[in-house]
Amino acid sequence: MTVRMGFVIITSRCIDCDACMVACRAENDVPIGKTRNWVKSSGVQGEFPKVKEVFQPGNCMHCEHPPCVSVCPTGASQKRADGIVIVENSKCIGCKYCITACPYDARFANPETGKADKCTFCLQRLEQGLKPACVQTCLGKSRHAGDLNDPESVVAKLIAKYPSRQLLTYVGTGPNIYYIDEVVPEIPEGK
């Protein structure tokens, strides 16, 4: 089967330490004031004393049908064969069309390069056999990344075992981040 790179994020394990954002900034030289990933809060839910707050980390969903790629006038935005969505900087004119077209607000205009910027799945690390920086650093083990089509991968095993959801599926983008809200006591072994 073809490779389909994506993320599984377990919201119940996120403690909002924002280490993923720091790690991404350090790894990818993301300019201050912009970010390639985020942690969103549900706000306080329920009534005292039964209150809770859920954190939902995110980044580019490396969509199956990415509108950011189809609208790009120069072919700079591309979806690779392994599913990773990238921007080829030399072709990008900085028109920002892709930024307006992403329903997850996962892109930004990089003020230093003048190009569209976004999560690259840490390609430079993948080539060395490493996980993306945000996944590597996640101390709650909330973030996981890998080939969703490979049954031996952690992500596929998690999706097989727990109910998961994707964001804004009705927009038709086919996002490749799967969220698990249930308590996951043990992370399965895998690639």
């Binding site: 006038p73 120069t74 990008c92 004119i93 900085g94 028109c95 205009a109 003048g114």
Partner: peptide, 12 residues
């Protein structure tokens, strides 16, 4: 003027 990389516009 609105382009981030105006000198690249010929790519269009």
């Amino acid at each position: 003027l609105d382009l981030g990389s105006p000198f690249n516009f010929y790519r269009l």
